[in-house]
Amino acid sequence: MAAITLPARLDSLAPCTAFVAACATAEGVPPQRVSAIELAVEEALVNICRYAYRRETGEVEVHCTRNETQHLLIDLIDTGEPFNILTLPIPDLTTSLDDRQVGGLGVLLIQALVDHVTYRHADGRNILQLAVRLPS
Protein backbone atom coordinates (compact mmCIF):
# COMPACT_ATOMS: atom_id res chain seq x y z
CA MET A 1 0.00 0.00 0.00
CA ALA A 2 1.13 3.53 -0.76
CA ALA A 3 -0.11 6.47 1.28
CA ILE A 4 0.23 10.23 1.50
CA THR A 5 -1.09 12.72 4.06
CA LEU A 6 -1.78 16.26 2.93
CA PRO A 7 -3.40 19.39 4.36
CA ALA A 8 -7.07 19.40 3.32
CA ARG A 9 -6.64 22.50 1.18
CA LEU A 10 -7.01 23.26 -2.50
CA ASP A 11 -3.27 23.67 -2.89
CA SER A 12 -2.88 19.98 -2.05
CA LEU A 13 -4.58 19.17 -5.33
CA ALA A 14 -1.44 18.82 -7.44
CA PRO A 15 0.49 16.55 -5.02
CA CYS A 16 -2.67 14.52 -4.37
CA THR A 17 -3.48 13.85 -8.03
CA ALA A 18 0.21 13.28 -8.83
CA PHE A 19 0.40 10.66 -6.09
CA VAL A 20 -2.69 8.82 -7.30
CA ALA A 21 -1.59 9.06 -10.94
CA ALA A 22 1.77 7.52 -10.05
CA CYS A 23 0.06 4.65 -8.19
CA ALA A 24 -2.33 4.00 -11.07
CA THR A 25 0.42 4.15 -13.68
CA ALA A 26 2.53 1.73 -11.64
CA GLU A 27 -0.43 -0.68 -11.70
CA GLY A 28 -0.57 -0.55 -15.49
CA VAL A 29 -3.55 1.78 -15.92
CA PRO A 30 -3.47 3.42 -19.39
CA PRO A 31 -3.06 7.22 -19.62
CA GLN A 32 -6.68 8.20 -20.37
CA ARG A 33 -7.90 6.11 -17.45
CA VAL A 34 -5.23 7.71 -15.26
CA SER A 35 -6.65 11.13 -16.16
CA ALA A 36 -10.12 9.87 -15.27
CA ILE A 37 -8.88 8.67 -11.88
CA GLU A 38 -7.11 11.99 -11.26
CA LEU A 39 -10.33 13.81 -12.06
CA ALA A 40 -12.39 11.68 -9.68
CA VAL A 41 -9.82 12.23 -6.94
CA GLU A 42 -9.79 15.98 -7.60
CA GLU A 43 -13.56 16.19 -7.25
CA ALA A 44 -13.43 14.13 -4.06
CA LEU A 45 -10.67 16.24 -2.51
CA VAL A 46 -12.43 19.50 -3.37
CA ASN A 47 -15.62 18.29 -1.73
CA ILE A 48 -13.76 17.13 1.40
CA CYS A 49 -12.16 20.59 1.70
CA ARG A 50 -15.52 22.25 1.06
CA TYR A 51 -17.79 20.17 3.31
CA ALA A 52 -15.91 18.05 5.84
CA TYR A 53 -13.61 20.89 6.82
CA ARG A 54 -15.88 23.85 6.31
CA ARG A 55 -15.44 25.03 9.91
CA GLU A 56 -11.92 23.89 10.67
CA THR A 57 -8.73 22.88 8.96
CA GLY A 58 -7.42 19.36 8.85
CA GLU A 59 -5.71 16.72 6.83
CA VAL A 60 -6.67 14.16 4.26
CA GLU A 61 -4.98 10.80 3.95
CA VAL A 62 -4.91 9.09 0.58
CA HIS A 63 -4.24 5.37 0.46
CA CYS A 64 -3.78 3.37 -2.73
CA THR A 65 -4.05 -0.40 -2.49
CA ARG A 66 -4.35 -3.20 -5.02
CA ASN A 67 -6.85 -5.81 -3.83
CA GLU A 68 -7.16 -9.48 -4.62
CA THR A 69 -9.99 -8.89 -7.11
CA GLN A 70 -7.80 -6.87 -9.45
CA HIS A 71 -8.96 -3.43 -8.34
CA LEU A 72 -7.03 -0.34 -7.36
CA LEU A 73 -8.66 1.01 -4.21
CA ILE A 74 -8.18 4.69 -3.48
CA ASP A 75 -9.25 5.70 0.02
CA LEU A 76 -9.64 9.37 0.88
CA ILE A 77 -9.83 9.67 4.65
CA ASP A 78 -10.50 12.78 6.70
CA THR A 79 -11.44 13.56 10.29
CA GLY A 80 -13.74 16.45 9.49
CA GLU A 81 -17.48 16.62 10.06
CA PRO A 82 -19.30 13.44 9.04
CA PHE A 83 -20.28 14.09 5.48
CA ASN A 84 -21.20 11.75 2.66
CA ILE A 85 -20.49 13.62 -0.54
CA LEU A 86 -22.41 10.97 -2.46
CA THR A 87 -25.61 12.47 -1.05
CA LEU A 88 -25.01 15.81 -2.78
CA PRO A 89 -27.71 16.54 -5.36
CA ILE A 90 -26.86 16.04 -9.01
CA PRO A 91 -28.07 18.87 -11.26
CA ASP A 92 -30.72 18.28 -13.89
CA LEU A 93 -28.69 17.67 -17.05
CA THR A 94 -31.61 17.62 -19.42
CA THR A 95 -32.54 21.30 -19.19
CA SER A 96 -31.76 23.92 -21.77
CA LEU A 97 -28.84 26.28 -21.33
CA ASP A 98 -31.05 28.96 -19.77
CA ASP A 99 -32.13 26.65 -16.97
CA ARG A 100 -28.95 24.65 -16.62
CA GLN A 101 -27.49 24.95 -13.14
CA VAL A 102 -23.86 26.09 -12.96
CA GLY A 103 -21.85 23.71 -10.79
CA GLY A 104 -22.64 20.48 -8.99
CA LEU A 105 -21.02 18.16 -11.53
CA GLY A 106 -18.28 16.86 -9.24
CA VAL A 107 -20.12 13.91 -7.71
CA LEU A 108 -21.58 12.91 -11.06
CA LEU A 109 -18.06 12.80 -12.51
CA ILE A 110 -16.73 10.73 -9.60
CA GLN A 111 -19.48 8.16 -10.02
CA ALA A 112 -19.05 7.97 -13.78
CA LEU A 113 -15.27 7.87 -13.93
CA VAL A 114 -14.49 5.07 -11.47
CA ASP A 115 -16.03 1.63 -11.26
CA HIS A 116 -17.37 1.82 -7.74
CA VAL A 117 -17.63 4.47 -5.01
CA THR A 118 -18.49 3.89 -1.37
CA TYR A 119 -18.65 6.09 1.68
CA ARG A 120 -18.51 5.08 5.30
CA HIS A 121 -17.97 6.87 8.58
CA ALA A 122 -15.95 4.94 11.13
CA ASP A 123 -13.92 5.87 14.21
CA GLY A 124 -14.56 9.55 13.63
CA ARG A 125 -13.33 9.40 10.07
CA ASN A 126 -14.98 9.90 6.70
CA ILE A 127 -13.73 7.22 4.33
CA LEU A 128 -14.50 7.63 0.66
CA GLN A 129 -13.31 4.71 -1.41
CA LEU A 130 -12.92 4.82 -5.17
CA ALA A 131 -12.42 1.44 -6.83
CA VAL A 132 -10.94 1.11 -10.29
CA ARG A 133 -10.76 -2.20 -12.13
CA LEU A 134 -7.20 -2.84 -13.24
CA PRO A 135 -6.27 -4.12 -16.68
CA SER A 136 -5.75 -7.87 -16.63
Binding site: T95, S96, L109
Partner: peptide
Protein backbone atom coordinates in the same frame (compact mmCIF):
# COMPACT_ATOMS: atom_id res chain seq x y z
CA UNK B 1 -15.20 13.98 -24.97
CA UNK B 2 -15.78 11.56 -22.11
CA UNK B 3 -16.13 14.38 -19.56
CA UNK B 4 -18.52 16.27 -21.85
CA UNK B 5 -20.58 13.11 -22.42
CA UNK B 6 -20.92 12.45 -18.69
CA UNK B 7 -21.89 16.08 -18.06
CA UNK B 8 -24.25 16.06 -21.05
CA UNK B 9 -22.65 19.18 -22.42
CA UNK B 10 -23.86 18.33 -25.92
CA UNK B 11 -27.24 19.57 -24.65
CA UNK B 12 -25.85 23.06 -24.06
Amino acid sequence: QEVFRISRFHVV
